[in-house]
């Protein structure tokens, strides 16, 4: 499948951003959040992109935005398209995005992880508020760029005191010939 042709067809229907052709079989395109659902449904039902490969987020802290990437695959045509959705990134509190668990049930797992690791809420997604990996976490979501791992580690864990070190030659001399040392 020619991804450029697919893009031109989609662009007639939805307000898409520019196409980034990474490889002949992989392209990325940005679109507004409100057009994600119809675009996903169109790609799944009309264009054969039936496999949700992954759903993940990229934190563009400097721009105050989260990038959500929905990567879809069309196996029969051997090509992939990545949909990028930019959403606002509140300095504190949760960002919000529409859930797609009804289109792909497996998306619920990805959304649970994003809720916990990036603080992006997907209202209505199954078990979205349940802990996924972290237990009793009360800091900011740890995969956000402004989460300082070093500071967290220093505050949460004790540094092990360094071991006593000796010069091997002097030490062995003392062990073997204590009188001469």
């Amino acid at each position: 499948m020619n991804l450029r042709e697919l893009y031109n067809r989609l662009k007639a229907l939805f307000p898409l951003g520019d196409l980034t052709e990474q490889r002949p079989d992989l392209a990325f395109v940005t679109l507004p959040a409100e057009f994600l659902r119809p675009t996903l449904l169109h790609l799944r039902d009309r264009a054969g992109f039936t496999h949700l490969v992954l759903l993940t987020a990229v934190d563009w802290l400097e721009e105050g935005r989260f990038q959500l990437t929905y990567l879809l695959s069309n196996r029969s045509q051997a090509c992939d398209i990545g949909l990028r959705v930019m959403i606002d990134r509140p300095a504190s509190g949760l960002a919000t995005m529409e859930s797609i668990h009804d289109i792909w049930p497996t998306a619920a797992t990805y959304q649970r992880e994003l809720r916990e690791m990036f603080g992006i809420d997907f209202p209505g997604s199954p078990r979205i508020d349940e802990e996924f990996i972290l237990e009793g976490w009360n800091d900011i979501p740890p995969y956000r760029r402004d989460f300082d791992t070093l500071k967290y580690a220093e505050a949460s864990y004790n540094q092990r005191p360094g071991r006593e070190t000796r010069d091997p030659a002097t030490h062995m001399k003392q062990q073997l010939y204590p009188g001469e040392a």
Binding site: V53, L54, D80
Partner: peptide
């Protein structure tokens, strides 16, 4: 940004890598 996949013993294994022009991966 790119996505690379391979067929491992359990199925599709893939890496999604995003770079921002710095010396470190963005994601």
């Amino acid at each position: 940004e790119t996505y690379i996949r391979g067929e491992c013993s359990r199925g599709e294994y893939g890496y999604y890598l995003v770079t921002d022009g710095s010396g470190y991966p963005r994601r």
